[in-house]
Write a protein that binds this DNA or RNA. Structure first.
Lengths: 124, 124
DNA sequence: CAGCATCCCCAGGGATACTG
DNA sequence: CAGTATCCCTGGGGATGCTG
């Protein structure tokens, strides 16, 4: 989802590209997982890393930075002896939860359908 | 969002990766736009292409195939003289609309928070 | 009209190693 | 603990051209 987007010199902002722009909020392979992991409350770096096993520190760190910069989550540094950092969703970030849940639900249903028959719901 | 996912040999399916799997439903840079364009009803290939100017035929076609295969949309071929194909969301596909809307809304709010340079339209 | 085929590119991500 | 720094590699996507 990179979208090299040359110049995007559109007279009127075309709606679909607006969508694409907004989708950047959850851009990055693991961004949705981060949000998902934070939906139950604040978590620390290594907790997130443990929540999302396949993610590397580098990428996790990159995603967290982006999401913070975008205003999806907050970073709290606690000046403890071993450094400890907590990440927490902002209010806007929490608004993404229902969206992710919806997608997950559709994803599940879709997977089940593909086991049986897809064309059943064709009409309607 | 490729997620090379070696083997995914996880004892218990970790939830976040389940999310990742579900997110694949709208994987691909322009998939959300396709769904978005179809939310108002069936549309034809070139209409979609016009709706989403930056997308190429190749990619649009690829996305449409994927989305069809996943059960998000249906493909109707009408045997007219010049071939004419209509794409239409399935019921499950329509369930994604609210999710996209939520993301778009958050995206907007986020952009406004980050400064008002966003919609700096022609200063009338 | 609707769409493949081809070629190319590069940003995002994996792996590994290192640090304050 | 919580990240950076490097290197490499993959595949999704852009551009262009051609077909039924």
């Amino acid at each position: 989802m990179t979208l090299k987007m040359r110049k995007n010199r559109s007279p009127q902002p075309p709606e679909p590209c607006l969508l694409t722009e907004c989708m950047q909020v959850i851009a990055g392979a693991w961004a949705p997982n981060v949000i998902w992991s934070l939906r139950a409350g604040p978590r620390r770096f290594n907790e997130l890393k443990a929540d999302i096993p396949p993610v590397s520190s580098k990428v996790l760190s990159a995603r967290l930075s982006e999401l913070e910069e975008r205003g999806v989550l907050l970073r709290h540094v606690r000046p403890t002896s071993p450094p400890s950092v907590e990440y927490e969703l902002t209010g806007l970030g929490e608004e993404l939860i229902p969206a992710l849940e919806a997608i997950v639900e559709v994803g599940h249903k879709l997977k089940q359908l593909r086991g049986y028959e897809v064309a059943s719901e064709a009409a309607e």
